[in-house]
């Protein structure tokens, strides 16, 4: 168990290094420079030269590559070129928590709602209930988030006036409802689909019949015998959604006016803000690695056979 953990953490190092290398060279290979304001007044070449010199952009690429890596390892991701009063660390500290909170709430909603709905769809004797739940799940998978967000804002915000149409006032306010639901819909749909399928597979296995022959009540059988065994695929699916739900969605945050990480990430790319692009990508990569690790750890918790295979 411990050796598995150490092995996985060590294997994350090359993963992160590759992510850094890729994003560094892709960012620098994109045409344009950080100093293009995008307006109709091109920047003075002498000023550009001074700026380049100040931020080491005049040095050869490999020098920039190593010096940034060295600084990043010590926790300094550099200044933002777009907003020079802020460092990347400041930006991450300001924007990431908003996205993390919304994302965590959305994932919690997706799992807490998805598992019971998936189980209900699998176990119900009424085809209509199963059909309704499957329809919700198909809609959730096929509708893009920007459509969902727009529909929610128009219906709940404009139509019913229940939620503000724009802006962010904190997690426990009405302003978080639309982004949470928009973010949750895709993972919710995926969890429902996956859990329904695996419950259907599990419910006819012999040990479930054994449990019924013991005289157990339906709910403990569903939870301990069917659920425990059906959970692993659902957790895997939820994990793959968690990474990108947690760092925030550009569309949801832009449409609902949330000052979040996902939106800032895309804006930084448009502005060729190299340190921000690289820093945020690395954060994203770390989150993906951590979530994958958590998913793997959940296998240990859920399936004793995994302990035997990988624990050695």
């Amino acid at each position: 168990m411990l050796s598995f953990l150490i092995k996985r953490i060590l294997s994350a190092i090359p993963t992160l290094l590759i992510a850094y290398t890729l994003v560094f060279f892709i960012a620098h290979a994109t045409p344009g420079s950080p100093w293009d304001s995008g307006g109709n007044r091109p920047i003075e070449p002498s000023i550009k030269a001074v700026l380049d010199a100040k931020y080491n952009l005049d040095k050869p690429l490999y020098v920039q590559y190593t010096s940034y890596l060295w600084n990043a390892l010590r926790g300094d991701f550099g200044p933002s070129y777009r907003d020079r009063t802020q460092s990347v660390n400041d930006i991450v500290a300001r924007f990431l928590p908003v996205s993390l909170k919304l994302g965590a709430a959305a994932m919690l909603l997706a799992v807490l709602l998805g598992l019971p709905l998936g189980a209900l769809a699998a176990l119900t004797r009424h085809p209509a209930v199963d059909g309704l739940i499957r329809m919700i799940s198909t809609l959730g998978i096929s509708m893009p988030t920007y459509v969902v967000t727009s529909i929610l804002i128009v219906s709940l915000g404009v139509g019913l006036g229940l939620v503000p149409t724009f802006g962010w006032k904190g997690l426990f306010t009405a302003s978080s409802l639309v982004p949470i639901f928009s973010l949750a819909l895709a993972p919710l749909a995926a969890v429902i689909r996956c859990f329904r399928t695996s419950m259907l597979e599990v419910m006819n296995l012999d040990f479930v019949r054994t449990a019924r022959a013991k005289g157990m009540k339906p709910l403990p059988i569903i939870i301990h015998h069917m659920g425990r065994n059906a959970l692993i695929p659902a957790i895997t699916v939820a994990g793959s959604y968690a990474a990108y739900v947690l760092v925030g969605s550009f569309f949801v945050e832009s449409i609902a006016g949330i000052p979040g990480f996902g939106r800032y990430f895309v804006l930084a790319i448009a502005a060729r803000d190299y340190p921000v692009i690289i820093g945020t990508t690395l954060i994203y990569a770390v989150i993906v690695v951590v979530i994958n690790l958590l998913v793997d750890l959940s296998y240990f918790l859920l399936d004793p056979r995994a302990r035997l295979e990988q624990g050695r």
Binding site: D206, F207, A213, M216, H224, H225, R228, D303
Partner: peptide, 21 residues
């Protein structure tokens, strides 16, 4: 009645037990 007045043993012991409990 099940498991209390009438006990039951099924055919395949590997499949009759829950692998994760």
């Amino acid at each position: 009645v099940r498991g209390n007045e009438i006990g039951m043993i099924f055919q395949d012991p590997s499949a009759s037990l829950n692998p994760v409990l």
